[in-house]
Amino acid sequence: MNSNSLPAPLPPVIEETSAGRAYKLKEFILFLRVHKLAAIGLSIIVILLIIAVIGPLISPYPDDAYKAVHLENKLLPPSWAHLFGTDELGRDLLTRTIYGTRLSFQIGISVILLSILIGIPYGLISGYFGGWVDNVMMRVCEVFLSFPSMLLSISIVALLGPSLNNMMLSIALSWWPWFARLMRSEAVAIKERGFVEAAKSMGVHPLVIIFRHIWPNSLSVIIVQISMAFGSVILTAASLSFLGLGAQPPTPEWGLIISTGRAYFLTNWWYVTFPGVFILLTVMAFNFLGDGLRDYLDPKTRNS
């Protein structure tokens, strides 16, 4: 290297990307205007997220979230004092639903994070190296995929004992193969591209190729999958809690609230309805957003 002839350091260059970012934001807003469903999904998610974050501040009866008992108020229908009514122990259902939102987002984020942490490196390695490594790794993946994911989660929880943490672990274990497979197919496609070949020919280390060249170019696909998966994970968590395999009383988990409320369904409609509506809204919103993002990020389907 003729490093002795290096000139003085360059003056900092004014970032031209602030304008670029503004343009991208504008483009996204325009997209949302056309894609009404994606806009609706995104709005619902933002509202739910705000509810989840500031939950304790806006709950009318924060004590009711867990252990409080007010038998004098039990099973009151919706009123101004209790917008969503109360349950059989007299706890405010609005408060419990709000805390449930918080919990559901926590579950969603943890499970997705865990699945990604396992699935993404797994898929990247499998797809990039190919050959027998790929074969072995994908067969392992298929063992997980060959069970219905609900059944797999139930078996794992049954093995580990029902609790919130075990439930999250079990959902993550049934979800990571989906990320692994998606990541693998992306890696297989991207590694054929010229810049990977160029990097290889320069002798760049495989791990550097994987994380510097392949991973950033597959981000958009992963983001879509995350959005789609988020709704399903929340739904699965509610289902498992409904079956008594996840959150345990008195945790304010949507599925668990519905499970308890089942007994009062015929006489006290509000008990199961409001948590149910929240589950529905959340899952729907994530699917809408996921669909929209797929159209937005995939240039092939993006022509509107």
């Binding site: 010229g194 810049f195 070949e197 160029a198 990097a199 020919s201 002798g203 510097r212 950033p216 170019n217």
Partner: peptide, 19 residues
């Protein structure tokens, strides 16, 4: 590897668009 380098035909295809 250091001694042999290549200029590729399709410059767009041969550069990582994220870098």
């Amino acid at each position: 590897t250091r001694n042999v380098q290549m200029v590729f035909q399709d410059s767009y295809w041969s550069m990582n668009p994220k870098l």
